[in-house]
Design a protein around this nucleic acid. Structure first.
Lengths: 346, 346
DNA sequence: CTGTTAGCGCATTCAT
DNA sequence: ATGAATGCGCTAACAG
């Protein structure tokens, strides 16, 4: 049986399509009997209005596009979870596109999403060379078409749209202070986030904390790595360089891998080296020793982004004052760091 | 600037819409000059054909719906990753719906997906009471509309459609044999999969292995748990019941949590109790001790499902001989089990 | 070479 | 109370 349409129903009852349409919408313009017959018939053959035709007619799709760099990253999955929750509540579906950290894929995906398939998009961008302004014109395509967009986490500073991010500066600052508060002297950073805005903010927070404690930041202690890098090598030369006793790592999986390597080299955690990571996921909880992490509240970021986007989609007046929401992080203390010393005591 | 349409371009050049359409499609019917002008103008104002209109016209959407019970479960994310990869390669987008293990949500989502938004769906069903035939009529809605569907992992036995699953019987069998081969005598099962088909298959495999070794299965050793259950209590009464030295757990996160509890009770893994889990994810790798698991090759399941679905969508003749693909599992041996004893040696 | 017409499936305004 | 006509944005068959 081919898909049932209003036209088919109409010809079955020898009436016009508009009569059928009205009957199905329970219009009072239609006689009760005919209405009942039509609706019964429709139900029986489980008629469903074609969504695509409705979308065309209504000039909206009630779906939002979500673009993330890596679906295997737990942080993004948490965000997805939050987005899905709100979207569902507010009657939207989500179409998910993974860019796999490829700028080409990001361009391709944004091109697709700007062709009318979605009412708005939520995006966390790939790690790229920033500063290259021309590499960001794929966002204007969306914006020019008046398609609302909210960026989260990995946002691009100078793009004008709503944003939801964490207080990364403060996160870097507090994590570093926490290290120092437990007696660490030489704190290093491992940054798998390239030259991204959020990475830079975290590093600035780190530097501020060091300065406040009279420690001059040493750029050799900040190592930026990429996906292909050999972690074993990286960590080896870092530990050779200085007597490091604290490492702040910007990504959960990298944290766990490095803790694994360091332990297999014979170091004790946290006695010899303390660790703090980001993204408070299951891994951080169940690794041994369990990892102290900065929770970015991924689910909440997702909820907030989705709410903001749908507000923007549905608002009548488009007053273009964009908002940047800053979500507070929290530090979850576990066993990969020492206990904070109590100051002010002799 | 409002969205550019063929009509707008047409009126700008004082030609008809079909001329514009042809020009944009580089038809040889249009004079080179006009064509050049139109195409230039289109590019300049970055015209993009409205996808929704095209979908209506073509009677397809080039997108597939994916329905999973829980997006926070790493196994499903792996599958998603595989699906996305193939979909992208073959020119499809995916729209993801999470049912959060709720049958109501599953019904709602399937209803949505059967309204023309997608060309086909890939689904892993919620854990439900099986046997209740009437609770499964929401699938017929899809099938009646000739919308291709492939079920993966948590499939429903008697629904007629393509399926991709793992050899769960063999997985249960081999895992149990592995336990016995390392000297375990009393092997228990913790099953968070309710009365699902795949759970039953794994248990049957387990029983077969026991029988082959002259051990009569004891149903008290098979405990089915649900999300709300208190794991601490569960494991407590299980360990009280008998001197268990091996536990097979059907889910990665549950495995890790239970290993955590058991260790905090003072048991040594694997000396006192051995563990084998399912879903070979990062958690199993980095937990301490690292966990022996049955790898279900989630990514491959996703790839296979997507390929099968798209084949089905695009095939001309709909010969209705449905296929059930069985993917082989592999057992990844790690530190949560003892070393297999070598038989045949004195 | 270019335009007219029709239709994808539906809802809505305006006649009757 | 019912139907005809129009349009959402696009393409394609058929005229001219």
């Amino acid at each position: 049986m081919t898909k049932l349409t209003v036209k088919a129903i109409a010809s079955h009852f020898n009436v016009s399509v508009s009569t059928v349409s009205k009957a199905i919408h329970d219009s009072h313009e239609i006689s009760d009997e005919l209405k009942r017959n039509i609706r019964e018939y429709a139900k029986l053959n489980n008629y469903k209005p074609n969504r695509v035709a409705l979308n065309l007619f209504n000039r909206n799709t009630k779906t939002i596009g979500v673009v993330i760099p890596n679906i295997l990253n737990y942080f993004f999955v948490q965000v997805l979870y939050g987005i899905e929750k709100i979207a569902d509540q507010r009657g939207y579906s989500i179409i998910i596109c993974s860019t796999n950290e490829s700028i080409e894929k990001e361009i391709k995906v944004l091109d697709f999403l700007s062709s009318g398939t979605v009412d708005g998009v939520i995006i966390s961008t790939v790690l790229g060379e920033t500063g290259l302004t021309d590499s960001n014109e794929h966002f204007s395509a969306l914006l020019d078409r008046q398609i609302p967009m909210v960026m989260f986490d990995r946002v691009i500073e100078f793009i004008k749209c709503d944003k939801v991010m964490v207080d990364d500066f403060e996160a870097g600052y507090l994590a570093t202070k926490y290290f120092l508060g437990t007696g660490c002297k030489i704190v290093a950073i491992i940054n798998p986030l390239g030259n991204s805005y959020i990475g830079r903010l975290r590093i600035e927070g780190y530097k501020k904390a060091l300065c406040e404690n009279g420690i001059g930041p040493n750029d050799k202690l900040i190592v930026t790595i990429s996906y292909q890098d050999d972690l074993e090598l990286t960590i080896h030369s870092l530990l050779d360089f200085d007597k490091i006793d604290g490492i702040l790592i910007f990504d959960e999986l990298t944290l766990v891998k490095i803790m694994d390597i360091v332990q297999s080299k014979g170091y004790q955690i946290p006695k010899d080296i303390s660790f703090i990571g980001f993204t408070n996921g299951e891994l951080s909880k169940y690794v041994t020793p369990s990892a102290t992490t900065v929770s970015q509240h991924g689910k909440f970021i997702g909820e907030s982004s989705a709410d903001k986007l749908i507000d923007r989609i549905e608002e009548e007046c488009d007053t273009c004052n964009f908002e940047t929401r800053i979500i507070k992080t929290s530090l979850i203390a576990r066993e990969s760091t020492l206990k904070p010393k109590e100051y002010g005591k002799a």
